[in-house]
Design a protein around this nucleic acid. Structure first.
Lengths: 135, 135
DNA sequence: TCCCCCGTTGACGCGCACGTAATTTTTCAG
DNA sequence: CTGAAAAATTACGTGCGCGTCAACGGGGGA
């Protein structure tokens, strides 16, 4: 059941180019095995690509994404390293929470602006009592 | 009460460089008035800078930010234009909502990973009944 | 008045995240 | 085995968001 994907499989799957996958490998985000010279991506690689692309959509840089991916597969044998990973994880967590708060604020403002524009439009469409007509 | 800010005032206020403010002007995000050759920013400009920087932190490009800022001060006289602005606003709104959802998913995963790492760490610190000792 | 420092205006540079073109190598169906 | 398509390698190019440097005012405090 060990399914493998070629570079084109993954590229088509996520609507990216092979160049992008090779670049992610260049910066250490992926380490596909090789059969001869060809890269073979497994299920774990596929999930990582998914996470990388989500990170990009959210505005994170590739090094930042690397940090977060490191959290998922941290070496559970070294205690001090484990503590360090936990600390960095909490840091990222707070950063993400702050980003959610700012996005929520932006969302609320967009809603308010939409409602305001909608009211202006409604007032122009059915002007029963346009203001300034009391003369 | 018309308070004005020099380019350095705003730069220091937001911990950016004057070059950044000039760049935002180059791409049409700001249009400060001039006294001679010097730029003078008013309160509205200051708020716009604040919104621009929040947009950047959230991963939006400068053109995307320009689109959103255009929503706030849309011309309320042209009905067709108003409809168009509302449509683009709703589009941005859905985009922001999708981004919130993805960010929330990332947040949940970070929480889960933190808890998992914490449990591993706890198990290594007080190993009362370490598994594999039942022989 | 003079000088100095802040601001302005180009213009080039740079790091990131890839795009793209050329060339070479590999693979695999027939 | 062979030929052609796909993958790999290498290297340069690109768009964005500024950084940086040089050269040039101009205005305001001593």
């Amino acid at each position: 059941m060990r399914r493998y994907y070629t570079i084109r499989d993954l590229a088509d799957m996520f609507d990216i180019t092979p160049r992008t996958l090779r670049h992610y490998e260049d910066v250490g985000l992926l380490k596909p095995v090789r059969r001869g010279a060809r890269r073979l991506y497994n299920e774990r690689d596929r999930v990582r690509v998914q996470l990388i692309l989500r990170g990009r959509r959210l505005g994170f840089s590739l090094p930042e994404i690397a940090e977060m991916l490191d959290l998922y597969d941290a070496d559970p044998t070294e205690i001090t390293q484990l503590r360090e990973v936990l600390r960095r994880g909490d840091e990222k967590l707070r950063q993400v929470e702050a980003q959610i708060a700012e996005l929520q604020a932006l969302h609320d403002e967009l809603i308010a602006t939409r409602n305001r524009l909608q009211r202006v439009l409604d007032a122009k469409l059915k002007p029963r009592q346009p203001k300034g007509c009391d003369d």
